[in-house]
Amino acid sequence: MARHKILIAIIGISIITAFWITYVTLNPDQNGTGMMKFLSVYELRATQESSRVRLGGKVATGSIIISATDKLDASFDLAQGEASIPVKFYGTRPDLFKDDAEIIVEGNYHSGMFNADQLQVKCASRYEGTLRDESSYNLDEL
């Protein structure tokens, strides 16, 4: 008897949680931060997606403009190859944010402008790249 009760209870719990997980997967919370599409610059320009998305790309060299009155206010271009999208971001920027940094922003794309409220920088290439730099020199050049 007890065995059946327990079995039923366990199956019950599993079914309920399975439904719960499916529900949350299909209906992420209202502001759409739970699950987002992760697009590249090309893809976003092609689809003109207006819901909240993540966008990855490189900060176009020389495009960063920081407001003279408020240093938290920044705008820049996010580039992928030839294509780019202008981005606005207000807030504390990560330490590694600079020209050419590979970054991911989160926010909405609206009439040609991406309004981001999250900005992440991919890990510094310093630790993964090759060792060619000023502190090393090429034997052939000696």
Binding site: T17, V24, P28, G34, M35
Partner: peptide
Amino acid sequence: TKITVGAPFFNQVTIPI
């Protein structure tokens, strides 16, 4: 399509459990 699953998803799912 690439989807990223953020912290809100995990919080929403795991808090009640």
